[in-house]
């Protein structure tokens, strides 16, 4: 069972994630929450604007979920992935990855796999805002074409 979306920060919600992953078939659940921290590259960060190619992001999330099920031999996998879009202030939530499975090892592996793959291949971009300096788009990783 899977849910994913790209949402405004006002709509990113742990309650929604918790309700989605509740299952009596699962003995373990895990929440990963990414938040905006106050420093990067020796600069004082005040917020991040996230840009997203929504259609490609959702497709990427679905591919990652399906690959995780195949690679990690998960039992009763449930995952909820939402990424924020637009301006997120310091301390705000940029991403929620909530997963549930039969056993605890599976949820750690599942959650880690999802976030690491998102970093590698999901078309989302960050523009960091600084105290007293111009905002900057952060360097990223070239998207590889699957042959």
């Amino acid at each position: 069972m899977f849910h994913c979306d790209v949402v405004d920060i006002k709509n990113i919600s742990l309650d929604k994630a918790q309700k989605f992953i509740e299952s009596h078939k699962c003995g373990a659940s895990l929440f990963f929450i990414g938040t905006v921290r106050n420093h990067n590259n020796e600069k004082e960060v005040t917020g991040i604007t996230y840009d997203s190619h929504d259609a490609m992001v959702k497709k990427s999330f679905e591919e990652i979920y399906n690959e995780a099920i195949k690679k990690l031999d998960l039992q009763h996998p449930v995952a909820f992935v939402e990424h924020a879009k637009g301006y997120v202030p310091l301390g705000g939530i940029s991403i929620i990855i909530a997963v549930a499975c039969k056993h605890r090892k599976q949820v750690y592996d599942f959650s880690r796999f999802i976030i690491e793959e998102i970093k590698k291949r999901t078309p989302i971009w960050k523009k960091e805002h600084y105290k007293g300096e111009d905002a900057e788009w952060l360097d990223g990783q070239k998207l590889e074409i699957k042959k």
């Binding site: 976030i115 989302i124 990223g140 990783q141 998207l143």
Partner: peptide, 29 residues
Amino acid sequence: FSSKDEIIEDTYKLKNNDAVSIIPPIGGG
């Protein structure tokens, strides 16, 4: 570059009024 939600290669042939997206290096999460 992408067309809708598919990455396309430099050899992809375009038609009049096509819309494509430029996908610079990524860095979300």
